[in-house]
Design a protein around this nucleic acid. Sequence first.
RNA 1: GGAGGAGUGGCCGAGCGGCCGAAGGCGGCGGUCUUGAAAACCGUUGAUGCGCAAGCGUCCGUGGGUUCGAAUCCUACCUCCUCCGCCA
Length: 422
Amino acid sequence: MLDLKFLRDNLDEVERRLATRGGAIDLGDFRALDDSRRALLSDAENLKAERNQVSALIGRTKDKSQVQGEIVRMKAVSTRIKELDEELRQVEENLKALLMTLPNLPEANCPLGQSEADNPELRTWGEPTQLGFEPKPHWDLGEDLGIIDFERATKIAGARFSLSKGAGARLERALSNFMLDTHTQGGKYTEVLPPFMVNRDTMTGTGQLPKFEADLFHMDDPDYFLIPTAEVPVTNIFRDEILDGAELPICYTAHTPCFRKEAGAHGRDTRGLIRQHQFNKVELVKFARPEDSEVELEKLLADAEGILQALKLPYRVVDLCTADIGFSAARTFDIEVWLPAQQTYREISSCSSFGDFQARRASIRFRREAGSKPEFVHTLNGSGLAVGRTVVAVLENYQQADGSVVIPEVLRPYMGGLEKIS
RNA sequence: GGAGGAGUGGCCGAGCGGCCGAAGGCGGCGGUCUUGAAAACCGUUGAUGCGCAAGCGUCCGUGGGUUCGAAUCCUACCUCCUCCGCCA
């Protein structure tokens, strides 16, 4: 959510900066709603002030017959207040609805662009893997090795689900544990295990609602949503709270399944593990002071990159342009891992800074010092990493000519010493 | 799922339909005293909206209602606690 006052005072600038995301955003309604809100508010408040005053007088008067006229008059005033409050409620509802559907302002140094084709590549790490033979895609590797069963997953649930077994299931678990252990080492991040189903307020706090309900799995018996990422429950840990500034930054990591409908992705990445309705992810979430968020984003990105480096998987870092960053994000860096079978880099992590956008929606604040005014924190998060896609990267990059897959060294302790899947 | 009880400021806790944004305590902050600290004492200490400001409004789990006036009365919902049942 954008700051109402900032929006009011900088309407043109906001419109211009939001336009860099692509797709016109019309703020024409805003001015009218905002004006009428303030007019109604002022009318209602004046009447309330009068009512408070006169009611106090009535209270002080022992002989009520002396103030009978005032009582009758206040009855009418109260009726009028009720009407104004109702009008105000509707205007505020509309205003809030508008506000809640406005995306975040891209940060000033977010590169301008029209589409993902305009995302600058910041750096690459490692050389694209040279195998010296025709690489198999991971779905063939997985099925040939008997560690991934797509057909039966489809029988059990449907398209875009997978079933891992044996060394495949263990590889997924090994990666998850390796990532969590790495991030929590030395107390860098605190591990949390949040609910995988959340309520509407929580989904609204991080920006999935009200605009993107179609992307979410929803149950209506209790009105719950399956989380599309751990960002949602973890960021909302401090919803409606005021934190002690001395505790910032607060850094959490969480390993959770993620559930996504992938609505609108028909026909894209239909084979393999790349795009699933359910996948595991280790997430990194930070709450930081505004002046620290830029540095914290760099550190978070480095932490995510560290996993790929330890696994010796080649990757590149891309700076998402204004047209490609998500609804709530102010700045995003994607990490893309090299996939030999596709001869391309594919997204494996997305690290974003949200400024105070989520903090304002979810009301997450902090006090610099005891007694000082509460300020909004900055929230950040990133994948560290998407576990399913990391399985894909390991299988494809570590495959051998004979169809076996070598286990990356750092994972072997997590695989019971196993060095190769064959 | 059934039966009872409870939700007040960072925490504990009082609160008669008007004098309550709310006693008191703890904690926090400032001060006095002290070489320093503790103790003691004094003072101070919620959030938010509109407004240049003075100021005014709103918030006692949430929504609705009664009333000139609601933390206080009525109502629905939510959450928590206790007991019973069921259960990994």
